[in-house]
Amino acid sequence: MIPRPFEYHVPRTLSDAIGLLNEHGDSAKLLAGGHSLLPMMKLRFAEPDHLIDLGKLTELKGIREAGKEIRIGSMTTENELIWSTLLQTRCPLVVEGARQISDPQVRYRGTIGGDISHGDPGNDHPALMIALNAVFVLQGEHGERVVPADGFFLGTYMTTLDPGEIMTEIRIPIPEAGAGSCYAKLKRKTGDFATAAAAVTLRMSGGTVSDVRIALTNVAQTAVRATDAEQALRGKPLDESAIAEAARLAMAVCDPVADLRGDVEYKTAMAGEMTRRALATAYSRAAH
């Protein structure tokens, strides 16, 4: 319950935050919503000497449409995602996903940028962002770079985010009209991390799948994209046997860790089942 002592910093500008991060190096951690970091500090799994609170950086908040993208500030909270009419109408997968993350109080504080940067395979946004083909804007001392969600996640709690960088924005291509999507999450109870979950985006044309992306939550060291399953579906009708084959191929990319949520076989089977359900629901929501 009691974290180790640390120095607290509350920068007013992004460049001050980046300056502090580079000044203190490995001994510093960024504090966003604090709903992964503080729990780890309370259990002394994390013991940073410096916390740099991004809470006053209003420039990192907000959801807006910019050309063919929706741009979400990294400090935007989960509840702000859920209540965004822009996301509800133009990118409902983010809303459906966020509604299944944790609980109301946590969603007032936890941010999309923190959920992604944490790099926990149990978190939901990593797979959602891969399914949505999102990119992340990372700001460091020497400027910004934009990296795709697919490839960002390297391992458990490991991403391509450099120690001196701050994720500032998430950019999601606005799904084309008629696209279907679904996030199917199996969990033991509300607020739990997934036993297995599947994020799907799907577009049909002329009775066949013209575009599909499938990403899985908490069944490997990172969120994983099921590319073989996608490949098997493209250009084909989405009937029951195609969905079953995609689910089988999705299971093949699973490499879950056995824990209280289940053993390897169970989680793998559930990843297949979530893939099946997410594909079927995304199909029912897509225009065809």
Binding site: M1, G34, H35, L38, P39, K42, N79, P104, Q105, V106, Y108, R109
Partner: peptide, 8 residues
């Protein structure tokens, strides 16, 4: 906002 004051 409703917040859990143990996590702030």
């Amino acid at each position: 906002m409703s917040v859990k004051s143990c996590t702030m």
